[in-house]
Every structure is written in structure tokens, then in C-alpha cells.
Write a protein that binds this DNA or RNA. Structure first.
Lengths: 331, 331
DNA sequence: CTGTTAGCGCGTTCAT
DNA sequence: ATGAACGCGCTAACAG
């Protein structure tokens, strides 16, 4: 009734359990004939190794713990896609948790994931509770902190400098001759990286002797709907601005929709600039001017580096996956 | 160096391992005083239970295996979001695999997930290899097959009838007076449900004495870009059609973009109809007419039903999460 | 190249 | 209300 075990395979193939185990894990030399016998027994019995037992015996597992702040923001599914791509062809399985941007939840997820003795834990950003940081530091699993490289990681950070991305946005707009620049954003508590980009933007403007003309931030998460409404509200107050930087593409696409509905010429009357380089922005009648963040590459690179070495680096490693300006036609 | 075990906690709290285990799992009566001592010891040591050991001993685990065909299609991250929502507050952890629409890959994922003795396995659709079906049938874990209810499930199916959704699209357009209807779609091999909707559409038209005027299918997966190009191509051949049904919203949004660029009045000159009810479609200057599929509800409902009972139903259970027409302004 | 011997850390069963 | 003994299925270390 219950599933066959190593012992069943061993007795059918007339070898020791150990030999079966070796065949399965492809470890050490096995006589071709025995290997064949064992494989046949495995097939005949429909044997599937019990990972829990293996994990207990070896105190390690082929699990990759993945902790994401959200699944609603398209960016994270894309990171997850990169992680999957990096995992393809290996026998590692991702085990996923979602924090909803709650550091306490992250802490408890880290603890449950650690309970499975994963090969690595991948999480987001640099902010963790003290307890979470301690658990990660004390454990020996590899740790990847994604998206953001403006900090010193526990083991490995992969991402881009959001501060620098903000500065680049400023430089781009200034280079195009825009001077009265506004900002439309979403909630920074839930998204520190959006805040970092904002700070970079302000700094970039300051270096050119400019300041942000006007800004409007919504309370909730980013969305096209929120961006549409928030731009409308901003423009009702500030009619003289000539460009708007959005916290990300979702918001910017919403802004574009507002301009279309309100018949505002983009970019002649108002220029729009986003962040992320989502496909939808590039499908607009005028492709959105934005910054391409390499979400997919971030996930994939992180996995590859993490799996390349089972031991942590002596010195924390930082990998910059960079970003690039998509010129577009809206700014 | 290595993490503390039950035994460490037990000796610190001066009780037997067994008592500690009971406290942790909240099973049986424990004297308040001992419970307190144990909890303090746990905290002091930073004890985290080893799940692999627990799982081995109990031959069960709090893992939910989730198998998705793709992470690129926004629909599946949304299902995953629903799954997470259903799992919130429980101690279950999703373990995820992605098949890339490859049934062989699904088979091997099922086998690796089964190796962890999960509480349930959630997968997509009704199509599986014979071996995969056998593994699922023979195991005792609960099995949820999502998205599609036009088939007899192994244990539980949650989703909607795509055939019926297609018929509804036909009825809606006919009711609005459209008669020369075209179809723009993506690759059906990768998406049997899109095919089912197509069949429903054709059937719905036939019942009204109509036929599809013209159709165009791309080879790759759905995307706004593909939809844009495919509609352009279709219109170059068939200038007299008055409405187009798309395989889904991604394609339809692309079609909308083409109409904007080509200055085709929607819906006056050409009506557009999608499927899924994605947010982006509703943000267009004219909200997309489409059918809302409840991806989130599908994931959440499935998890809730699966966890409600650790034993399989004697009879396969089918749950229809339904769909609804979003009237929109494009058809 | 293969077998033997010992656990891994926990849950279960039976006592008390 | 608590403890003792056993074994889950596998891998590791050492023989040979």
C-alpha cells in the first residue's frame, strides 16, 4: 500500500540499499550491470525517493527558499520567472513565501524555510528585522538579497542602484530640455526602492540647479488606475509642469491613459517617464520613456551565483545587473 | 555550531523530548507551568524544528505542491496569488514548479513533488501523461486541477467552463448586432483552454446561423505585441468585419493599440472583445469588453477546499467559479 | 566496486 | 499530564 522504499528496490535488485542510493545520486563508481539492475528495479516498483528522509540524513535539501514581498506587482513574478529559469535543469525546487511587505512576516517565513534546511534563501532588499538578520547570519545557507544593491548584503546582493536610476531619470529629462518636472508616486513604505529612486531624482535635479515642481503620492500600491487618478489630481494643481516622473511604469501607463482621455499631447504638452520597462509601456501608441530594470536577469543571476558555490563568500558579494534607459517617445 | 534539536530544548527545560514536541504541535494537555518552561527554552535556544525529521516521522508534510504551466502569462501569477491568500494563516508552504506547457515536465515535477509527501498537489487543466495520472491516482495526496471544469477530475477541479465562456462571447456580440465576426488568437497547443473558448465561440455563432468571417492565429504565446501585429494582418485581408474576438485580453489590448495607431474607431468601425478581465484592459481610454475569469478565486477556492479535508472525496468534485461579462465600451 | 553499521531529529505508541 | 522506546527512509563513514 505505502510507497516502496530503498530497501524494496535493494532486495529486488539483490544489492545493498547503499548501492541503490549511490545509483540514484550518481555517486561513486557502479558496475554497469548493477546499475542496470537497480534502474530496472526502480522502474518496476515505481520507486520515488523520500526527500524528507534524504534531507534528514544529509541535513541538506534541494530546496531554494524564495521570499517575495508581493505577487500583485508584476515585477516579482518576473523575478520568480528568472529564478525558475536559473533552476531549470537542476533538481532544486523553489519554496515560496510572500510577505505582503511585512517584515515580521518575512521573519517568520525565514524561520519556516530554514526549517527545511534549504540550499539557499532568496529574499528582497536589505531591510529585515534584527531577528531575521540574525537567523540568516547564523545559518550556513547561502543568502541572496535581490533588487537593490545600495547596501551591504549578508552574503550576496543582486540588483541595481535605484538611487542611480533616479539620477539617470533626472539627467535624461534635463538633457531633453525639461525644467518644470513633477513626480507621481505610490506608497514608499511598501516600496523603499521607489523612495530611493525619488531621492536620486531629486539629487539629480539639484545638481542641475533644479527642484521638483510638484508631487503627488497615493497611499496604496502602484497601479495603472492609481497613476491615472494621481496624474489628474496633480495636473489640477500644477498646470505649468512640462514633465512627470512616475514611481514606476504601472503608474506611468495610467498617466498616459489620463493624457489620452484628457487630450493632452504627449510629450509636446507633457512628457512622461516611468521605471521598469514593462512590456505594456512599450505597446502604447507612443512607447513609454522609461528605465529598464532587469527583473528576469536579477532572479536568474542570483540563482546561478548561489548554486555555483555551496559555501558563502568570505566577503559579501554585490552584483550589479544594471539598468538602461529606454528612450521611448514620451519624454 | 549546528542548530539545536528537540533534545537540547528538552534538557534545558528539564522535560522529555516528547513533551517539547507536544508543546510545539499543541497536542494533548500540558501543564501551564511546563508549557511556559518549554517555550522559554525554545526562545532561548532559538530552536527551529527540523521539518524533514518531522515529515519523515509522520510521513506527511505541510507542503502544497503547485505546478503551473507558465509564469510569463499574468494569469498564473494571479492564480498563485489566490493560492497564497488561501494559505495565509496556515503553516502550509507552497512548493512551485513550472512546466512551460510541457506534459513530460509536468510528469517529472509531479514525481519530485510527491517525494516530499505534500499535503496536496495543485496542477492545471485535465491533460496529463498516463504516468502522471497514475502517480496522482495511486498517491493519497489531495489533487486539485485548476482553471478548467470541462472534464472529470482526479479529485477536485476548480475553474470555469471555457466552452461556455466562448458561447457567451458569441451571444454578447450577436446581441449587440455584430454579424461579421473575426478571431485573433495565439498558439492553442500551449493553451487548450483558448481553444475551448474558440470552439464555444464558433458554436455560439452557429446557433445564430453565423460563421466566423476570418481568423488569424500566431504561433507563439499571447502578448500585446502579438495581438497588435495579428490584428493588423487580419485587417489587411478582411476589411469588412465589424468585430474581433481575441483569445485573451493581452491580445485584445494589442489589438486596441493597433486601432489607435491606425485610427480605427472602436467600437464604431471595429468592435473588440477579450477574455480574462485583466486590469490593463479596463484602463484603456475605452474599457475593454471582455469576460472576467476569476483567477484569484480559483486559486484561493482550490486551496480552501483541499485543506478542508485531508482525505479525497469519494466522488470527484467540480467547483465552478464562473465568469462574468464585463460590458466595457469596445463591443 | 560494494556491503555494514550508525545515526539524522522527530512523531507515534504504549506505559505510567 | 508526562516519559521511554522505537522506527520513519535515507546517507555517511568506513571497511573490504
Amino acid at each position: 500500500m505505502s510507497s516502496p522504499t530503498l530497501a524494496d528496490v535493494a532486495s529486488l535488485a539483490d544489492v545493498s540499499e547503499n548501492t541503490v542510493s549511490r545509483v540514484i545520486r550518481d555517486k561513486g563508481y557502479i558496475a554497469p550491470a548493477t546499475r542496470k539492475r537497480v534502474n530496472e528495479a526502480i522502474r518496476k516498483l515505481g520507486y520515488v525517493p523520500n526527500r524528507a528522509a534524504g534531507s534528514l540524513a544529509s541535513s541538506s535539501s534541494a530546496i531554494i527558499g524564495v521570499i517575495l514581498p508581493s505577487m500583485s506587482n508584476i515585477v516579482f513574478p518576473e523575478v520568480l520567472r528568472g529564478i525558475h529559469a536559473g533552476l531549470a535543469g537542476t533538481h532544486y525546487q523553489p519554496m515560496i513565501g510572500v510577505t505582503d511587505y511585512d517584515l515580521k512576516k518575512e521573519e517568520s517565513l525565514i524561520s519556516s524555510l530554514l526549517a527545511w534546511k534549504p540550499a539557499a534563501i532568496i529574499t528582497t532588499g536589505c531591510e529585515h528585522t534584527a531577528a531575521a538578520r540574525r537567523m540568516l547570519k547564523n545559518s550556513t545557507v547561502r543568502v541572496g538579497e535581490l533588487m537593490d544593491i545600495d547596501h551591504r548584503p549578508i552574503d550576496l546582493a543582486v540588483g541595481l542602484s535605484h538611487l542611480e536610476a533616479g539620477r539617470s531619470a533626472a539627467r535624461h529629462l534635463i538633457g531633453r530640455g525639461y525644467a518644470k518636472i513633477g513626480y507621481v508616486g505610490h506608497d514608499w513604505n511598501a516600496d523603499k526602492r521607489a523612495h530611493a529612486r525619488y531621492l536620486g531624482l531629486v539629487e539629480g535635479l539639484r545638481q542641475a540647479g533644479l527642484v521638483l515642481s510638484e508631487e503627488n503620492r497615493t497611499n496604496g500600491p502602484s497601479s495603472t488606475l492609481a497613476g491615472k487618478a494621481a496624474l489628474a489630481e496633480l495636473l489640477s494643481r500644477a498646470k505649468t509642469i512640462d514633465a512627470v516622473v512616475f514611481s514606476n511604469d504601472d503608474m506611468a501607463v495610467g498617466g498616459y491613459m489620463h493624457c489620452m482621455a484628457a487630450e493632452i499631447a504627449v510629450p509636446e504638452t507633457l512628457a512622461l517617464f516611468g521605471f521598469n520597462g514593462l512590456e505594456i509601456g512599450q505597446t502604447l501608441p507612443k512607447p513609454l520613456s522609461t528605465i529598464l530594470s532587469n527583473r528576469f536577469a536579477i532572479g536568474k543571476t542570483a540563482v546561478e551565483l548561489l548554486l555555483a558555490n555551496s559555501e558563502r563568500n568570505k566577503k559579501p558579494q554585490i552584483v550589479d545587473t544594471g539598468f538602461s534607459i529606454l528612450e521611448g517617445s514620451t519624454a
